[in-house]
Each structure stands twice: as C-alpha cells, then as structure tokens.
Write a protein that binds this DNA or RNA. Structure first.
Lengths: 122, 122
DNA sequence: GCCTATAGTATCAAGAAGGATACCGTCATG
DNA sequence: CATGACGGTATCCTTCTTGATACTATAGGC
C-alpha cells in the first residue's frame, strides 16, 4: 500500500489543478465524495449507493481518499464491525469543486451521453 | 482508437460529476486545457510548455480531448505541417470547473505536496 | 446447526494509461 | 549533402487500476 501517487508536481502552472485532479481522479472518488456530502455513512451503505463498484475497489478508493485526507474513517471496535466514513475538513473544502463539476456535468451530460460528439455544432 | 470511455453513466446522482471528471482525468488533460486557455496553440508549442509529457502521450491526450469535443484541431495543409489547437465552445464552458480546481489546488497544494497527510490536524 | 450481515483481505487476472524510442516525409538552412 | 523543425505514427514495455472471486471472524436470528 501507500502508493506515492502525488509526488511529481513539476508542471509549474496549472499544476495545482493536476494536483487537485489527482485526488479525485479515481473513477469512483468523486461519486463517493458526493454521497458523503449527505453525511456520515457506513461501508455497506456506500456500497448500496454505488452498486457498480466492487468491494475491493470501494475499499481501495476509500483508503486513498483517507490517505489524501479528504475523508475520515472512524472504526468502532464493536462486535459486528462498524466503520463510518465522513468528509474531513479538507473534504468539505472541496465542495465548490464538486459543485462546479456537477453543474458542468448536468449541463453537458446530454452531449456526450447521447451524441458521441458533434452535438456542439449548434 | 476510438476508445468508448464514456459509456456507462449508470450511477444516477453524482454521475454527471463522474462524466465531467472522465473528460479531464487524463494526467495531462487539465494541464493542456489550462495552457489552451491562453489561446490557440500549435503542437510543439504545447510540447514546450509541458515538457514532462512525451509526444505520443500529448498526441493521445489531444486526440481524446478532441473526441470529447473540448478542443478544436485545425490542420493546415501546408508544407511544414501546421496544426493548431484551441478550446471549443464546450471547452470554454469548462472554465469555471478548471478555475475551481485551480483555486482548490493553490490553496491546498501545500498540504499533500509537503506533508503526506496530517497537515490538516490543525 | 445454518444463514446472514458486517467490513474487510487475499489472490488472480485483465486491461488501460503512460513512457521510451525510433521512424516518416517534406522543406529550409548551413 | 547533412541537419533540424514540423506533427505526428508505430512499436514495445512497464506500471497502475480495476474487476471477479473466495475467504476471514463474530454475533444474531431462525
């Protein structure tokens, strides 16, 4: 584990963008973040909300998110395992980004969702 | 070629985010987009601005960006090949996203750039 | 005793992304 | 003539990411 993914921030300008992207680029990261916006959630709760992701992948994504400090993982030493995930302060600071992304997506999803391209010809 | 990357938009909500992300997730996409914000640019001009990327990769990223309708590729049938890249209308519509990303990155790059984590303990 | 839920881990395997390098044809320059 | 710039393409290779599947431990319900 402990993949050093965020190590080369050499591309001077626009680099911070790359850095930001690198934190949410995983196919599911942003989706997870979005669901977490609604509040603290347990592992299987997340699984149910994002059925398309496998357990292993979800675990991995959560771990990465945690390593990046975007979410907080709270383990309860109870008998049936209980783990809660929630957004960290840093995670919350990303809300505007998520929203910008969502707004853009909502506006434009029709384009590439239906037409492969050229829908912009307007 | 023609990789159908944007085909499963099944994750109901937050999905538009995923869609948006999918367009700029390539390691260099956002960087390219950023440079293109400054105006039309030729291939080697981009290369010089992003030296860390190889020719092949840059070509690929540009192709994908083009396929996604974010940029416009204009080929001049001149003797020394001349190709200009510029943001499309759709590409411009992404500016707020790029800016949100950049702002967040600028604010937080210090955290994970230096401290692996825990910088948020404050 | 058996099944289920919980939150994972382990193992195997496949595919995609990205990098390195070499090569293409043409033209202008030295 | 040799070299370099232009905008790529082709090939090979390695790494990362993701997926599928099976397995763990314990407790509660039937």
């Amino acid at each position: 584990m402990a993949k050093p993914r965020h190590s080369r921030f050499d591309c001077a300008p626009g680099c911070s963008v790359e850095a930001a992207i690198s934190l949410i680029d995983g196919k599911w990261k942003c989706v997870i973040l979005f669901h977490l916006l609604e509040g603290t959630m347990r592992f299987n709760e997340l699984r149910r909300r994002v059925p398309a992701v496998t357990q292993r992948t979800l675990t991995n994504q959560l771990r990465e998110l945690e390593m990046d400090g975007l979410i907080v993982r709270k383990v309860y030493a109870e008998v049936p395992p209980k783990v809660e995930y929630s957004l960290s302060e840093l995670g919350h600071s990303m809300v505007p980004v998520l929203n910008a992304l969502k707004e853009w997506g909502d506006l434009n999803i029709g384009r590439f969702g239906k037409a492969p391209a050229s829908a912009i010809t307007a």
